Computed example of a mutant assay.
Amino acid sequence: MAKLLTDAEIHAKASGLSGWTIEGSKLQTTRKFKDFIAAIEFVNKLVEPAESLGHHPDIEISYNQVTITLTTHDAGGLTQNDFDLAETISQIS
């Protein structure tokens, strides 16, 4: 099981991520696209990185807006896995 990060570690790592916020024990970002099709195309680009890291985001789609929430469920909070995936997602357009 992945090790939970301390509050200090979480805030230090989050400060290096543009567009992400800490919401309780979760890391979250929302992206807006021109339409539903573009939003779904973005979500489809998340499949490969999530599978290769063995870590999967919670995804909410509302027409042209995609909200991604990361947490390590079995650890009960944020771990390095969440920040690794957030960095990868941040590079996807």
Rank of each mutant, 00 (worst) to 15 (best):
F33L: 07
G24E: 13
I40N: 13
E60Q: 14
I68S: 02
T72G: 01
F83G: 06
L17I: 12
T72N: 02
D84G: 04
A12L: 09
G76A: 00
H55V: 01
E9C: 08
M1L: 13
E23M: 03
D82L: 03
E23G: 04
I61S: 11
T29Q: 15
A14E: 05
A14Q: 12
V47Y: 04
Q80T: 07
I61V: 13
E48K: 14
G77S: 03
E87C: 01
K3M: 06
I92C: 14
Y63F: 12
L53H: 09
G77K: 06
I68A: 10
K3P: 08
L53N: 08
T72I: 03
A75I: 02
I40A: 14
F83T: 04
I22N: 10
L46I: 03
E51T: 01
N44I: 07
G76Q: 05
G16S: 09
T71I: 04
N81R: 03
S25A: 11
G77A: 03
I61G: 10
I37F: 15
I40D: 15
L70K: 00
S18G: 12
D74E: 04
D35N: 12
T88G: 10
L78E: 04
T21E: 12
I89N: 09
V66M: 04
T29I: 07
E41S: 12
P49T: 06
G24H: 09
D84C: 03
G54M: 08
V43N: 06
H73N: 04
A86C: 10
L53S: 10
G16I: 01
A39Q: 11
D7A: 10
I92T: 07
A86Y: 06
H55I: 02
Y63R: 11
L4S: 05
P57C: 11
N81Q: 13
K26T: 04
S62Q: 14
S18R: 11
I22H: 02
K13C: 09
A86R: 06
G19P: 08
N44S: 14
S15H: 15
V66K: 03
I22F: 05
P49E: 07
T29K: 15
Q80A: 06
